[in-house]
């Protein structure tokens, strides 16, 4: 699996996700600086977490207008898979790669903690190594992860199985365990072809037993298996 991890000024989890990809795919991703003129031809594009452009204006808003994101959008529209995590999710939502928006956490604080996630769909490039309904434990670390979409969008997402993950408690109850106020406990969503996944939690920080557990690793294993 050839992959590219985008690096904007202020991106700070690119090394974490590059490590997770390498552990699953056995090959290092290209680290692509936002100002570099061309995006290499890859099987997977990753928009990593961090504080691109210092979160100025609005999280993800500045990066969304960078030339490289136009190229990412064009590739995504041609079907190249995109994994957008945390600030990457914010950028992807800004540019319309996935539906919805990310607002300030309901409690107005940054939150770094392990959370429980219910895998809503195992029918995707990203989640086929999980069982639908499985509860996994991965961390979140964000101040603006409060997912919101209007009722029509939510209905469409749910009808089409585009909700990837929901926050839940350890028993899988998706009315509990919400760390940020996200509507219907939504933690991650697909685009309508399920080739783009945007999610707030950090599966890349749950890929080694001693460093946060391994519940995030199947996501990278799934991509590595699907995108050979």
């Amino acid at each position: 699996m050839k992959s590219a991890v985008l690096v904007f000024p202020g991106t700070n989890r690119e090394t974490d996700i590059a490590g997770a990809i390498e552990r699953s795919a056995g090959i290092k991703p290209h680290m692509v600086w936002h100002g570099d003129s061309d995006l290499p031809k890859v099987d997977l594009i990753v928009v990593a977490g961090g504080f691109s452009y210092g979160d100025y204006l609005r999280c993800g808003a500045m990066a969304a207008h960078s030339p490289i994101m136009r190229e990412v959008k064009a590739r995504a529209e041609k079907g190249v898979p995109v994994l957008a995590v945390c600030n990457g999710f914010q950028i992807a939502a800004e540019i319309g790669l996935v539906p919805g928006v990310l607002m300030r956490n309901a409690h107005l604080q940054f939150v770094c903690s392990d959370v429980n996630l219910k895998v809503e769909s195992s029918q995707s490039l990203f989640t086929h190594r999980y069982q639908a309904g499985q509860v996994i434990r991965v961390p979140v670390a964000h101040a603006e992860g409060n997912y919101f979409a209007d009722d029509d969008t939510l209905k469409r997402l749910e009808d089409r199985g585009q909700v990837a993950f929901r926050y839940c408690d350890s028993t899988g109850d998706v009315t509990a365990g919400n760390p940020n106020g996200s509507i219907r406990n939504i933690a991650g969503v697909f685009n309508d072809t399920k080739t783009v996944l945007g999610m707030m939690p950090h599966p890349e920080n749950a890929t080694e037993a001693l460093f946060g557990g391994t519940d995030g690793k199947p996501l990278f294993d799934a991509l590595a298996a699907a995108l050979v």
Partner: peptide, 25 residues
Amino acid sequence: IWRQYDHLIMGNTAIRPGGDAAVVR
């Protein structure tokens, strides 16, 4: 307090806040 600090980024935190000492790979 420490839930407001990202204590996991870099993926090297073996012992998290709340114990005697943190351990970082």
